[in-house]
Design a protein around this nucleic acid. Structure first.
Lengths: 116, 116
DNA sequence: GTAGGAGCTGGAGTGCGCTCCAGGTCAACC
DNA sequence: GGTTGACCTGGAGCGCACTCCAGCTCCTAC
């Protein structure tokens, strides 16, 4: 994760501003890093920033927080599963198409063999 | 697929301009539709437009075409597989996190039971 | 003490993939 | 023959998620 992305996340309120050292520089605790790691995981699985902000807001909120967090994650998990299913079915199409091209190649080399 | 997207694809040279009827309107043959369907499949599996254009160009090129097409698809298939693997591993993290929240909920309701 | 390098800030810019718009044309229906 | 609706064109605009920049401050190493 680039430093610019990190700043961007902080600006839009996706991550809490971390502590600063005496020189005014950010110091990330292990917990900060763990949270960032999880947020990155959410991003790479295709969760939009908007939803990540909802999740971050839920984390900060009180008693209702955990239930809301869980709900968002359950919802996201469903979409990840759907995405996996979509990709898997597309793999079949891709395999089929590739087989086709392999066949074309074989035909072409067979024709070449005859003309040679 | 929206009409605007279709026009966009035509503008950037991703699809060949289809035939027109007497009134100047586009008429898509079954073959056109099949190609569009496959292109859409590539898009939804995350192939960038840039690579789709390479594929479209390969389709139009002569003898070298099929080999190039196949190469592009094989490459893309690998990235789809990698993506699936990435998503699957993330699902585990997600499951774990959701379990955590479920536990928190159970703890909370247990505490509520004691204070009630 | 000074040169270098990393991090700081607010703001502007970028790339991708659409999406929308204004103003025009055409065919079909009443 | 007027109205309606779909499609036509070129071009502008948008949302997302970054990414880059100028100009500054601060710590470190020599």
């Amino acid at each position: 994760m680039s430093i610019d992305t990190l700043r961007y996340y902080e600006r839009i309120g996706l991550v809490d501003p971390p502590a600063r050292d005496s020189g005014g520089r950010r110091t990330y605790s292990d917990e900060d890093l763990a949270r960032l790691g999880f947020l990155t995981k959410l991003r790479t699985t295709g969760m939009p920033i908007r939803m990540m902000r909802q999740y971050a807001r839920a984390r900060r909120s009180g008693v209702a927080g955990p239930a809301l967090c869980k709900q968002i994650l359950v919802e996201h998990r469903a979409s990840v599963r759907a995405r996996i299913a979509e990709l898997r079915s597309s793999l079949d199409v891709l395999d089929h198409k590739i087989d086709n091209y392999s066949q074309i190649e074989r035909d072409a080399s067979a024709a070449e063999g005859r003309t040679a």
